[in-house]
Amino acid sequence: MFVNAVARVVAALNSNRRPGEIAAGVSCAVLLALVPAGNLIWIVLFAALFFVKVNLSVALLTLAVLTPIAPLADPLLDAVGYRVLTAAPLQGLFIAWYNVPIAPLTGFNDTLVTGGVLGGVALWLPVYFAVRAFVQVYRNTLRARLAELPPVRWFTRLPLVQRLTGWLRWANGFYARVR
């Protein structure tokens, strides 16, 4: 399954897709990993992944990789969230939010949620641009060099990868025809 996911990511990197799609997938995954699950914010963000053009494979794989290590950032996120939630100038805003019927379901009054959202949002653009630049560099220069490396050649010759690549190609064609 992991090989499958990695193959999808490799296929995405090498396909004719905008680098921004992949970059947005990674940025969204960072945001989702930093925000604790089980609240409305996380659910909405996760659901939004399916309705915008981000690369789902990249996003889900990145999320799966980052989620176990995200708690390492909890002390920092908790401190950020606490400072923001207890900042005197924002109290009126938060009190108003808190009294909005649906707002408590977002769990915004949890320091980790707020810290995670702020951290994720703050990291979103830097991560986006960095990943997008990396994809462009990869496609322009690294791909050709990497393709010549023995391990990569071995990997691309794997029957599973070839089948998957063929299947993805067919699926893309089918999708394009349907649209």
């Binding site: 604790p36 699950a37 089980g38 995200a70 708690p71 909890d74 996120l77 908790d78 969230g81 606490y82 939630l85 207890t86 109290q91 938060f94 009190i95 808190y98 009294n99 009054n109 949890d110 320091t111 980790l112 949620v113 810290g115």
Partner: peptide, 12 residues
Amino acid sequence: RRSGRTIVFPAR
């Protein structure tokens, strides 16, 4: 579940 500190705001 992963959670931080809960800040309670005045509310009914």
